[in-house]
Design a protein around this nucleic acid. Sequence first.
DNA 1: TAGGCCACCTTTTTT
DNA 2: AGGTGGCCTA
Length: 979
Amino acid sequence: MEVIADLHLHSRFSIATGKEADLEHLDLWGRYKGVQVVGTGDCTHPQWLQELADRLEPVAPGTYGLKPGLGLPLKLQGPLWDRLPGVRFVITGEVSCIYKKGGQVRKVHLLLLLPSLDAAQRFSARLGRLGNVTADGRPILGLDAKYILELALEIDPASLVIPAHIWTPWFSVLGAKSGFDSLEECFEEHTSQIYALETGLSSDPAMNWRVSGLDRFVLVSNSDAHSPQKLAREANIFLVPPAFPNLAQALRTKAGFGGTIEFFPQEGKYHTDGHRACGLRATPEETAAWGGKCPRCHKPLTYGVMHRVLDLADREAGVAAPEARPFESLIPLPEVLAQVLEVGPGSKKVNHLYFRLLEKLGPELEILRRTPLEDLAREGGNLLAYGIDKMRQGRVHIAAGYDGVYGEIRLLTPEERREVLGQGALWSPPAPVSPTRPAPPSPERGQPAEPPNLKVAEPTPPSPIEPLLAGLNPAQRQAVLHEGSPLIVQAGPGTGKTRALTHRLAYLLARRGIPPEEILALTFTRQAAGEMEARIRGLLPDFPGLARLTIKTFHALGHQMLTAQEEAREVADEDQRRQLLREAGKKHKVPVALLDARISDWKQALTYPEDLGEVNEPEVAAFKDYEAALSRGGLWDYEDLIARPTLLLTRQPDLQEAYRRRYRHLLVDEYQDLNAAQYRLFRALAAADAEIMVIGDPDQAIYGFRGASPEYFSRFRQDWPAAVPVHFEETYRLPPPVLDAARQVRRQAGVQPGPMETHQNGEQPLLLLERATEAAEARAIAREIERLVGGLSHLALEDAATRHRSPEEKAGFRDVAVLYRLHALGPELERHLTAQGIPCQMPRESVGPELDGLDLAAEKVKLLTLHAAKGLEFPYVFIAGCEAGLIPWEPEGEGHKDPEEENRLFYVGLTRASRQVFLTRARSRTLWGRKRRTLLSPLVQALTPEILERREESPGASSRKTRQPQLFPEIGPRPKKAR
DNA sequence: TAGGCCACCTTTTTT
DNA sequence: AGGTGGCCTA
């Protein structure tokens, strides 16, 4: 007994679905169509899962039915319908993986088949930690497809993952635009866990047989319906009982898998090649003859599924794959009726006849596949019977779909019409004979496989150049090689600062034989220290004694020095410190903020209560209490970690001498960010004859509020008169317009940064997007990101500007950062980007305890403060909130605090980008409950038009849906969610 | 001592 | 807006 199953469809929680896409209507339409098993779809969506749990009950293992009383009444009566059982549901869903692999953006849709509702709940919860599963029933995840497979099997080994509509150009495992050339490239060592492939609307099994690499897979077909009416336009025929374990077994082994019900693939939107704008349809042969270009406009043609299949094909047409299953090609009944009645498929006439036929003849699939022609003729007329007969024989004329244009079916020619309908018609339904399609070509052995394409590794000739200097420019080389006197390097953004530092370290160790323990490299952040260490290991793998190298933050070094001399204490965290300040401040009636600032100042000047003598200020008394409390609690604060070790060194000459003897080589990163205490610590550590290299960029000094002062940078040459200055003048990061913009910004502060030359190409100007509100601003950002990634879904298809970009040029989510001045802007941006289906993350949050490999592997857009972006690089950088008062930040009523530093901060933001910068602004912004009209940031205002393009909101923005080719055009716009 | 109400304030960050 | 701390009351 045949069991027809449609496993891939979507609920109303998916984007661009009708609100009728619920269980009740799926059950109803499953019965109308004649399907016994229906996937739930969207099994990663928490609300949908809740609905499944509420409304379904198990009827067999992993198989569910509507709870009693929930089924909708059929519009139909009669013996065929009165006792028709409801459909059975199995748990299915789809995820969209958008990620970079091999330097290219990949977009792969996967169909999931899970063995139980419980498994789905666990899977959803797990995915929810890696991305956003609530915005869309088909979530967009920045995760490698193979991890999804791993995860599904980890949740339950009975799960099945089926690559979805595998040939579509934009979103599939073999797709021409963002896919792979083989399943193995995608799933690697897990490929054996893939058992089935979904052929999609634009291809049928016969096309897939031409690729012998697919022979071992079960070829499945599903509707991918976005509304229940579209259910089962493609489907699977199983010859096993309708329960999950049997279906899964059949999908794994092919045994009990009876074949598929298909669209005519030419009807699909991407079947053949062409160019929509020119209305040009092309066969792959024509495309080849035209060199892939549209002969009318010479733009690249969009390759269709057929083309892609032929690219990978290694078997002749008309030869079935071994063990191939048969398939039947059908046209949905409403379309057949539309052809017969010469009206639209959505018309009342069609609808009326549709249900009349169903009532008399049974479910739609039965009518299309099996109902005897004479019965069709009796209930629907000769023309209908004739048309369906033609369809069953495959005699259908279809102008193939291309470049997003649906194929056009013509079932009946005018002559046929006349003949069949005319007086004394030549055609009448034949006597009842089995009207099934001719059997598919019998499976044969496939062609012998091509010899494997062996790649011979090219021997790399031994390099005569010192490898540690190879690839360095002259200034970098100088920084690496310099010895004998202190060195100060001024290194702008992207000029290879870390490169120079790490190569110098490696050179010291490996060429000059400096013992690792004599080297001290200091950074400001753990991340920078970690990166430096990793890069040294990369340069000198297996070098003995690397562990004895000291690469630390200033604070870590200070902590280590302190604990070597005193009883170790913990470092007070933010909360502890605030608590102690509050207590001390309260007792002595000193405002906490004031006390905080005073104590910081004191410690940065290496001053402790005992140095303040008998001053009677309440602040001093509070300071004493605070220090006593820290001590009682066994705590140091961050400033202690610098000030105290410095005092130890200055007060104990022998200790200082010991450190100075040990560290003969000192390197300091981000030298412009030293504060007074750090500067003194560094001076205390540096012997007169030590070899010193400091590197930094005074234009990027942004920690003045923390007591840092770029003054020490310029003072270096006074402190070390023998110092040699080096200036890195070549940037490898900034494309010319960004470099230009950055320099223009600095010029506004009266600073003319030294000469700079860029090796980065790219002429994209900065883009300024001004919107009415911060919500519109966030949506504009989301839209641009979507463009950069090259479209997130079929519905928001790549526009002309991006669609022909090669996959290498497209961005992955991790290539994008959104920067802003205040944390307060972060959550709102995150909310909107998330709602638009863009995986994003504010790194503060991710500092959770249970970060595993997958968490780290998930690609996300980063949301960062400008400060936090320091030292990072992203191809695409958005700077949000480019408004006067916000950038540069001017606290309410107080006016500019430090316009110089704000200017540098903006400079830092701009110079994070290696491809393009987007500046955005909200004309009205609500911040901390106060709504204000804003002006464009003066820093942006001053940028010249050659490098800054302004793009107003396109007036056609509201006509989105008319511009966009729709996969399911009958669906209205997505319902607005209440805020 | 819990709970409720009100006033306040809001940049950027280091083991 | 929204969270926090302070202060008052029962």
